[in-house]
């Protein structure tokens, strides 16, 4: 069934060079990394991580369709499902911290020292 679905990929899509997708995904990924490294708000950091994951999704779909191989798209589903689970746990942790210290600024978390 995957064979037939690949046949229906529009030609326009196939005319965009693969490199463009890779560059776009890499840019999104880099933005995500920078976000994680410089932002202080836990929610924003979390969103940056999600951006990284979605950049990967984009990359996988691009490879998948250029190779006419469905595995990449299946992987995307896995990533989305697992990311959802991660969001559940992550938000719970953030809420837990908000209850205790009434802020989610991670630069205020500095109790652990050598």
């Amino acid at each position: 069934m995957f064979e037939s679905s690949i046949d229906r990929v529009p030609d326009v899509f196939m005319q965009i060079p693969l490199v463009n997708f890779v560059l776009l995904a890499t840019m999104l990924f880099t933005i995500g990394i920078i976000g994680v490294l410089i932002r202080k708000n836990a929610i924003i950091i979390f969103m940056s991580i999600e951006l990284m994951l979605n950049a990967v999704n984009l990359l996988l779909i691009a490879f998948s369709s250029y190779r006419s191989d469905p595995n990449g798209q299946i992987f995307v589903f896995f990533i989305m499902a697992v990311a959802a689970a991660e969001v559940a746990v992550g938000l719970a942790i953030i809420v837990m911290i908000f209850r205790n210290i009434k802020t989610i600024d991670i630069s205020l978390l500095n109790r652990l020292k050598g």
């Binding site: 994680v36 836990a42 950091i45 979390f46 991580i49 746990v89 992550g90 942790i93 953030i94 837990m96 911290i97 205790n100 210290i101 991670i106 978390l109 500095n110 109790r111 652990l112």
Partner: peptide
């Protein structure tokens, strides 16, 4: 809490 969020992020 701090360990948890650091580990998670």
């Amino acid at each position: 809490n701090e360990a948890s969020i650091k580990y998670f992020l």
